[in-house]
Every structure is written in C-alpha cells, then in structure tokens.
C-alpha cells in the first residue's frame, strides 16, 4: 500500500520538489523569493531549510538571467528547476527559452542539451488583471524543442512535475494558480472548497516518488455524445459546463500540450462525432486552433457538427470584467448544446 496524504496543489508540487531533491543532488531550485521565504505561493516552502542554502536559493529579479543561467547549469549536467513568479513575466526570458533552451540539442546535434524545468503559475479567475492572469501555452506550443505541461489536480501536479524534472528535454510547467488551494468550477459566487474537503480522489497524493507520464491525457469523464478537450483550471469548469448542459459528454484532460496525446483525442472524437475545445487563453491563435485543426484532419469522416472553441476573448485580460471574460460553464454549456443539436 502506497502511503498517501490529502494535499492541495501547492503541497503536492512542494512534495515533488522535495522528493526529487532528496533523490538527486543535481536537482536544484531557484528563482525570485523561492529560497528563504519559500515562494510567493509557498510552493518551495521549507526546501532551503531541509536541503540547504545551495539547493534552493533566491535569484536576482531577472527572468532572462534566471532561465539563461539555468540553461548553463543544465549544459554542465545539473537538473535545474527555476521558477518564474508569474507566467505573465516569462517573456523577458522568451529569447532564452526559444532560441537557446529549445534549440540547444538540435543545433549542437546532441552534444549539448538543456533539461530545464521552468515552473510558473498561470491563468486567471483570481482578479489578477492583465499581468497576473495570462495563459501563454500557445506561444510555447509553437516552439519546437519545448515541452509544455499543465496539471489540473494535486495528484497529477506532483506526478507530472517529477516526470518533467526527469525528462531530458526542457519543460514549461504551467501551474494553474486558481487551482492551488482547491478545485474551481468557474462559478465565482459558489462557496469554495479546499482540495482536502473537495471529496476528490485526486487530492490523495502518494508521499513518495511516482510519475504521471508526459504525453498522456487523462479521461476525466466517459461519455458518448460529445468530446470536450480541456486542461488546467478549465478541466473543472468543463465538468460544471457538462453538468449544466445535461449532455453525456466525454471529458479529456490533456495534461500535456506538448507532447500531445493525439491518440486519446482522435479515439474519443471518432466515438462521439463532436468536439468542443475549452481554454482560458484568448481564442485567435490559441492552442484551440491547433486542436481544432488536428481533429478536423484526423476525424473528418466522423464529425457530425463543426468543432466548437470556447476561449477567452481577444483582448488583454481585464480586471473589472473578469467574469465576463472568463470562459465559464455557461458558455461551455451553450457550445456543447450547439454541437449536439447541430442539424
């Protein structure tokens, strides 16, 4: 029997880092405020005290410097796990991630590589306004050589983070900060539950080492009428929207954007004949466009309705209009019904 504990997502991520640091001295953690203070979201709490000053330390306020130095450490042979405080602030490091981390293995024909795991909180629903709410997965999905991973619950968060650290490729690990403390169904007026009292099995987290493999989606809910593709916070919003629609929908949590579990997606859409895609990021050029194209290419003969995309609007993330912008269960339910009732 594997020993488990009820954990929220923060504790699960902390546990993943603790387990890997305990197993492998080449794993080190650094970033702005992650050392002594334990991180602005507490994900690295206690790691410096337990593993030492040199294993988990604070960094100057320079995202390019954090990622650039992590690439150098990885080229030496370490397994750095740097943190970018908010995904909104990863852009100063975009050149390092795109031009260097993602290409180092390819351009050196395998002589050098950069197995860096970049953890960064992303996503909205927290009144974060323009620069504490963004979902930048599409700008990383387009970069060949990067892997992009997004968990939706504590169990996956720990298992996917361990798998990411062990992966030989650079990984952008996006943490839905809306889900740090508990599941969120996209209904801001509803009373919030913590992971511990959520009643969800995904808050039972093994205390030791385990992996959730990259590139494998999870089937959250089996259904026959329509396939809903989601990841991160939107997995829970999708559950609520499916319940609202009263439709027997199949819900797939992609878990990794790259590598993408294309087989799980095609098998489901070929079964249901309909597909609705849900993400927080704005719609135009969002990852939903890629998903839609793939489904159309691979499931054309099976489709009984146009593929629907429910996403953030094409604007910077607004503050006062948060719940108008946020693609909540009502909008998803409408799209599901439109797909099912098509013709």
């Amino acid at each position: 029997m594997t020993e488990t504990k009820r954990m929220n997502m923060i504790q699960a991520l902390n546990s993943a880092l603790d387990v890997k640091m305990g197993q492998d001295e080449d794993v080190l953690v650094f970033g702005e405020d992650v050392g002594y203070f334990g991180g602005v979201f507490r994900v690295t709490e206690g790691l410096q005290a337990k593993h030492g000053l040199k294993r988990c330390f604070d960094a100057p306020l320079t995202e390019g410097g954090i990622i650039g130095s992590a690439i150098g450490m990885a080229a030496y042979g370490l397994k750095p796990v740097p943190e970018i405080q908010f995904a909104d602030y990863i852009l100063p490091a975009y050149d390092q991630l795109v031009s260097e981390a993602a290409r180092l293995r390819y351009r050196s024909n395998g002589e050098f590589s950069a197995p860096v795991t970049v953890r960064t909180p992303y996503g909205g629903g927290i009144f974060g306004g323009q620069t504490h709410s963004q979902s930048p997965e599409a700008i990383f999905a387009h970069v060949t050589g990067l892997k992009t991973v997004i968990p939706s619950n504590p169990y996956d968060a720990k298992g996917l983070l361990i798998a990411s650290i062990e992966c030989e490729d650079p990984v952008i690990f996006l943490e839905p900060k809306r889900l740090y403390n508990g599941p969120f169904y996209g209904r801001p007026d509803e009373e919030l539950k913590t992971w511990a009292n959520s009643g969800l099995a995904t808050a039972d987290v093994p205390v030791g080492h385990y992996e959730v493999p990259l590139g494998r989606a999870s089937l959250v809910r089996e259904g026959s009428e329509v396939t809903v593709l989601a990841y991160g916070t939107m997995v829970h919003v999708a559950e609520a929207g499916i319940a609202d629609a009263g439709v027997d929908a199949e819900l797939i949590d992609l878990r990794s954007i790259v590598p993408l579990d294309i087989d799980a997606i095609t098998a489901s859409v070929r079964k249901t004949g309909r597909c609705v895609i849900l993400h927080e990021a704005s719609r135009f050029g969002g990852f939903g466009g890629e998903l839609s194209a793939l489904v159309q290419e691979r499931c054309f003969d099976y489709l009984r309705a146009p593929i629907e995309r429910v996403a953030g609007y094409d604007m910077p993330y607004p503050h006062a209009f948060e719940w108008d912008y946020f693609p909540g269960p009502i909008r998803l339910a409408e799209a599901i019904k439109a797909a099912v009732e098509y013709r």
């Binding site: 410097g65 130095s69 450490m73 260097e100 351009r107």
Partner: peptide, 18 residues
C-alpha cells in the same frame, strides 16, 4: 548560436554549476 549575448548568461550558470 546566431542570437547575440544569450550564451554569456549560460557561461555564468555553467560556472555556478561547477
């Protein structure tokens, strides 16, 4: 690489690792 300057930071990270 063709991108200027980026590897200056890698050298520092590499030295930190050492």
């Amino acid at each position: 690489s063709g991108n200027l300057g980026v590897r200056f930071v890698h050298a520092v990270g590499w030295a930190m690792a050492s």
